[in-house]
Amino acid sequence: MTPPSIDVRLYDIIVAPIVTEKATFASEDNKVIFKVRKTATKPQIKEAVEKLFDVKVLGVNTLLRKGKRKTFKGTRGVQSDIKKAIVTLAEGDKIDVTTGL
């Protein structure tokens, strides 16, 4: 018996989980925060999370953090824009982001 095949394009939508203090507090409310591709839509994010982690997604909220101008050792630079997705999971479902994809 072969394991079900997962579409590799789903890994292009979800870039990485975000592990911060704020994200840890959100996990208590069944929410997980991911860094996603800038062109990803909410239905695409929902489908990717459901298929990759085998959970039921109730909702997806997205935000686009604009890049900031920073100076490091006298050199000016610009951070990249980042799109984040806050995924609300159904009661009883859980994603352990420390294990990785």
Rank of each mutant, 00 (worst) to 15 (best):
Y11W: 05
R76W: 06
L10Y: 12
K73P: 09
E21K: 00
K84E: 04
A40P: 14
I13C: 03
R37K: 13
D7W: 00
L52N: 10
D12M: 08
A26Q: 13
L101Y: 15
R37Y: 08
R69G: 13
K31P: 01
L63P: 00
T24M: 11
E47I: 03
G77D: 05
R37W: 07
L63V: 12
F25T: 14
F72V: 15
E91A: 14
R69W: 15
K46C: 01
V15F: 09
L64W: 00
I82M: 05
L101N: 13
F34Q: 10
K31A: 00
N61I: 05
R76V: 12
T2S: 15
A40V: 13
V19Q: 11
L64I: 11
V49C: 01
V32M: 07
T75I: 13
L101R: 15
K31N: 08
R69L: 12
I45C: 05
V8P: 13
G59W: 03
V19A: 08
L58N: 14
D54C: 00
V19P: 01
E50N: 02
A40Q: 11
T39Y: 14
K31Y: 00
E91Y: 11
E21L: 07
K68F: 10
K35Q: 12
G77Q: 02
K70T: 08
E91H: 14
A40H: 12
P3A: 13
T24P: 05
P4G: 07
A85E: 09
